[in-house]
């Protein structure tokens, strides 16, 4: 960790001014930021603590648009009875993430900004275009079992690790952003950036901008949703493959489908291909597997992660079957 100045503003406005300073970074729950700083992967000169700011931690599920304050804790949403009932995919994605201790501390806004667990990014030594732009990508010819299959480039194949962001991608989600000068709302689909030549850039967030809320357009498909996650162990591990599926059913037939994938892409990954196969289909395991096959048709596997295509096909099928039973 490198020396820094810690500031704890009293209001969001003050925080936005502080965050606009060059070299400033925002600290909310701290579960990602402190980890990055201790590993020398982030070295802010000024740390702006917003974790205590009032008015940013409400969860409001009552209106036509669900609203999650950026400072709401993962645990608060994971344990929210209405969310569990009406949008089980969202609640499950949080429940299956991290550990209880981390969920108690980590915020919903910060969660979207998690950085990859790619070991070459984390180890501080190996060539990594994300850590040292232009230095190369060690994962391309190294250990790539956990790497991504979608949204990658020859500069970077790292995975987006988040579960919450993945589940949100199945819905009509937007991210509310404030800066000292302005505010804007960005659809989640455009919030994260797939890797091109500059994998160091992961979101559209600019210096001085703070995520203040996440919104989701209410949908009856929420009730017919699930988040399925396969990982090496039963708890406290990132997804090898995960899938959120939300369905509206007309008898045995799928009236509408929403599918997103995690553990396999550089960003939360919506699969229009899987949705197209599911929509109008009679939902059987075979149909679920066909949807999964469509989801992974465009995958670009590396040397040790091709199994994620077959595993992903099955995860989509399992999630679709679970979702259909709820719909």
């Amino acid at each position: 960790m490198q020396p820094f100045t810690y500031v704890r503003p009293d209001t969001l406005e003050q925080a936005l001014h502080e965050a606009a300073e060059p070299g400033a970074s925002v600290l909310a729950g701290g579960t990602t930021m402190v980890d990055l700083m201790r590993g020398d992967l982030a070295a802010p000169r000024r740390v702006v603590d917003i974790g205590h700011l009032p008015g940013l931690s409400e969860i409001d599920l009552s209106g036509p648009v669900l609203r999650f304050g950026a400072l709401a804790r993962m645990a608060d949403a994971a344990e929210d009875a209405a969310l569990k009932r009406d949008y089980p995919a969202l609640a499950e994605s949080l429940q299956l993430a991290a550990s209880q201790q981390l969920r108690n501390a980590a915020t919903l806004g910060g969660n979207l900004l998690q950085r990859t667990r790619c070991p070459y990014f984390r180890n501080g030594v190996s060539a990594c275009n994300k850590r040292v732009p232009g230095s190369g990508c060690s994962a391309l010819d190294g250990e790539d079992r956990e790497m991504a299959l979608f949204g990658i480039s020859d500069a970077c194949v790292a995975n987006y690790p988040g579960d919450w962001g993945t589940a949100l991608a199945a819905f009509d989600t937007a991210v509310e952003i404030r800066s000292a000068a302005a505010s804007r709302t960005v659809p989640l689909a455009n919030f994260h950036v797939a890797y091109g030549d500059d994998p160091a850039r992961e979101t559209v967030l600019e210096q001085g901008e703070i995520v203040t809320a996440i919104t989701v357009r209410a949908t009856p498909a929420g009730r017919g949703s699930t988040y399925a996650k396969v990982r090496d162990r039963q708890s406290y591990a990132y997804a090898l493959v995960s899938a959120a599926v939300a369905l509206e059913m007309d008898g045995d037939t799928v009236a509408s489908a929403r599918v997103s994938l995690g553990g396999v892409a550089s960003k939360p990954w919506r699969s229009a291909e899987a949705e197209a196969v599911l929509t109008g289909a009679t939902l059987t395991e075979a149909a679920g597997l066909r949807a999964g096959e469509a989801a992974f048709a465009g995958a670009r596997p590396g040397r040790h992660n091709a199994f994620k295509v077959e595993l992903g096909r099955r995860v989509v099928a399992r999630a679709a079957l679970t979702a259909s039973r709820r719909a």
Partner: peptide, 8 residues
């Protein structure tokens, strides 16, 4: 060694 932390 590649996975040199407790997340990996």
């Amino acid at each position: 060694f590649a996975n040199t932390d407790l997340a990996g």
